[in-house]
Design a binder for these strands. Sequence first.
DNA 1: AGGGCATTTCGGCATTCAACGACATTCTTC
DNA 2: GAAGAATGTCGTTGAATGCCGAAATGCCCT
Lengths: 199, 199
Amino acid sequence: MKSALRTRLAEKMAGEITLSASPGEAMKKWRLAFNIAPGVLADELNFSPSVISDYEGGRRKNPGTAVVGKIVDSILSIDEANGGRHIRKFAKILYNDFDPDVIYDMHDYNMPVPLTRFCSAIACTHLVGPVDQQIYGYTVVNSENAILQLSANEFNRIYGWSTERALIFTNVSTGKSPMIAIRVTPIQTALRDSPGNLP
Amino acid sequence: MKSALRTRLAEKMAGEITLSASPGEAMKKWRLAFNIAPGVLADELNFSPSVISDYEGGRRKNPGTAVVGKIVDSILSIDEANGGRHIRKFAKILYNDFDPDVIYDMHDYNMPVPLTRFCSAIACTHLVGPVDQQIYGYTVVNSENAILQLSANEFNRIYGWSTERALIFTNVSTGKSPMIAIRVTPIQTALRDSPGNLP
DNA sequence: AGGGCATTTCGGCATTCAACGACATTCTTC
DNA sequence: GAAGAATGTCGTTGAATGCCGAAATGCCCT
């Protein structure tokens, strides 16, 4: 029997694909979110790879439920066979009731990670604030969608399990959204006393 | 723009239908859950009523995403036009993270309702305990699925907003599940001092 | 019992899907 | 920059969908 989490995630994926104006794009989005190559997916399905392309490219605009179901299931099976990393990630986000378009990833370490190590892992440049700190997790946020979809007090929840974490904002244009996240929460940020220094 | 709740519910419905081994039956289940007649649904869709029958009866075993989407949307639109009672009900259940197969309905009144009035409304027979009480809501639970799917502390959540409520157990065979619900929660029940009197 | 309604069954037809495989194109990787 | 692998495009085929309307069935009512 499949886990309840897997079932719920499958339902969400299938629902999104089914309701999408272009199911093909939605399928592609999920395949990419799980970081699966078209060929691998085709293999799992015992399909010719071109079939995947046909769907994702939109040649079949109105795929049947059976196909959608098979594809969703295969994506999840592949991930499960690889340790289920993405399933866990999405499960967590779903469980916290977030749209995966807002929170791309959220993770909590079970041990403190030095900021320097984290920084070098994601190849980022340190600009302000103290370096000798530890973090316990991170959240990757789509700035634009966060502004559009999150209410002020929902912003809080991007802090996940531990608030001592890195917040990674993608899609930043004017820099508005990170500032909102920082100002809107009662939580202290490491930058609190020098926000004016941000580039 | 459609409300976030409606969207989420639509996604759940579409997902369930799409993943179901018989999409037709799943469609029917939802139509019935929203208490909508086939003819009315067909009307909203500008379809001939026979189409609904064809799908629900399984003649078309593998409907395309477009059809599923249209049907889900129509069901929701009809309910919305009628005040959105069912949408609110399901939204609440989804929001509390319950499977609609476990909790059939959950409602909280905004004013106390005398037990006698509630009793006569659902035509039930009073067996034990005091009659002169007020309740603030009710929950309809599928006993069997509740036992199978709920963990001990999840049982708590059937109490909803107010704990002074009627719990209605359906599908009761041995009477086990109501007893579990009563024993497992720290909440006082009106029957606490005379459970032995239950028939 | 029988008229009136809602629903299901079913034959039919145009359209589209499901899937393949051949071919063109775009990455990799050396 | 060229060989090889992975993807994408496309023509093709049988099968199934999407939808209708006519006829059959079931259901309520007085």
